[in-house]
Nucleic acid binder design. Sequence first.
DNA 1: TTGTAGGCGTTATCAT
DNA 2: ATGATAACGCCTACAA
Lengths: 333, 333
Amino acid sequence: VRGVRLSDLAEELGLDISTVSRALRGDPRVKPETRERVASRAESLGYMPNLRARALAEGRSRTVWLVLPGFEDPVERLPASFAGRWFFERDYDLLLAPHHDDPRIYARILGRLASGGADGAILMPGPSARRGDGILAERPLIESGFPFAYLDRSVPGVAAPVVTTDNAAAGAALAAAAFEAAAARGSPLALAIDAFDPGRNPVEAARSEGWRAGMAERRVPVLASAGASGDSAGAALASAGPGAAIAIAASAEATIVGARLALPSALSSKPAFAAAFDEWDGKDSAFKGAFIAIQDFEAMANAVASLLAEGLASGAPLPEARILVPILGVRSA
Amino acid sequence: VRGVRLSDLAEELGLDISTVSRALRGDPRVKPETRERVASRAESLGYMPNLRARALAEGRSRTVWLVLPGFEDPVERLPASFAGRWFFERDYDLLLAPHHDDPRIYARILGRLASGGADGAILMPGPSARRGDGILAERPLIESGFPFAYLDRSVPGVAAPVVTTDNAAAGAALAAAAFEAAAARGSPLALAIDAFDPGRNPVEAARSEGWRAGMAERRVPVLASAGASGDSAGAALASAGPGAAIAIAASAEATIVGARLALPSALSSKPAFAAAFDEWDGKDSAFKGAFIAIQDFEAMANAVASLLAEGLASGAPLPEARILVPILGVRSA
DNA sequence: TTGTAGGCGTTATCAT
DNA sequence: ATGATAACGCCTACAA
């Protein structure tokens, strides 16, 4: 199954292999006539360049990998699509390498990268890679100066650019939206529940922080989901009117519903507002209203992609920047 | 950013490059002692093989691409995961190349493949690639004898193995389940609606066929979704008892709901059963029951993967087989 | 057990 | 405008 090579073409045409090479890649130094001759013969023989040889000779493959956990979450699927198109327009191939949060797979993918599997990479490590236990899978990349950037999450201690949603601002925006809607509907917020999981990753932490800050600014007491037991919550509600409502925030709908169910009944029976990210189905919930922060996946994808591409073009090491992308807005449902 | 090469190691150790090469790849001909020496020096220098050079020399890259439309559907996400693990275990890399059903992207991906981007590929063409208008993107693959197999769908006229769910059997199984449940609940089926879209692709066609055959076997009249107008449907229902029910089948829930709404009111007000594939949410529907055919994505993934891997190992052209994978079963909801 | 040398298919740097 | 030739880094008969 050996294909047609440059040398085959050269022989057929009575030209030197180097001339053929130049002709095919549009080098202005070849006579238009020969260029034409070469092109048509190449076409008729079905010549296809050998990318492996080209990559070896050029030292690059015009290929970028996006290393991600899987495709469950919108933040995993959508940036992948946008970035894919972005690179396609610029004549790069973006390939996806899912690691399923399996440290062995993650490590092997990064090893392949360091060995020249691609010119650059966008990394979305899973929880296990970020725990910092065991060895750092990123080491081979770092040591070889391989160009990569993190998207949405990052591994603490690794000096590489990170592109994330401005999650703190998003949390605050949700707080503002929930607060105002509750007031407008005659059931002002007496208590906010923070059902984010700050220990899990920086994304959760920033959202939690923003939500709490936004509520604090409006003098609404905030309790962690786990700590919402009788006394403190009771006090907050006692000082509120009979129509007082609560607001629960978390990244995903399921978490919010679960947190509400886990509340003491004095709380779970109160009118409630929900604040979530990206998706809200609302099918099995009885909330007075829901507010959904919509992440700008296209902007995120464009940001990492251009950051990385610039590094590839210039050959300079990527700046250790932290880029915060604003959300598109808060949708209400 | 140039890395350590075999020749660097060889020089350091006072050995020949070929000995180092053999040592690192565990060739039994090297003295255990030197093997050890080489290994430790390679480790300390942080040697990583250059995959581009290796790929060129060996004529293969131990890399397979899965070319798919995107990640909306379970049939796109799940086989990708399973196949990824399958190849990982066998020391192959499975990379995903989404084409978003854009013919230009699809064609370029296949071009890259034919140029040696990977050793083999699993293809899930989108609707536009299967329409057969314009040029056949698969041509470069076919002409170069590149090993590839289709998953779930295929392009008519291309001689390559295809792995699909046994959709006709699945359609029949759904018919059986719906028929029996309806009878058991005292509202026997008087009419079945076929809301599949046979013209769209072979998958839809096979499901439609199975559903119709299953219903025909049980003497239940079947109407196409579009053609369920007054007269014929009325006749079918007139001869049935007052508690008679209808059953609507399609691939996705949304299609079923839409088809029901489009029915003449004499029909849409009847008690209805639903038959779908893979997912059933049931949130905004008022069906008496739903039956969901669960595809065996793991078996599908394993089937294509092993088919392809065998071809890669043997070097023989892939057999033009059509492999039908049974569904896992019918779930009721 | 180790060394030698040619090849994998292109690109790029020289000359001519 | 074209040709010769050396990289690119690794693999692998074949020789020693």
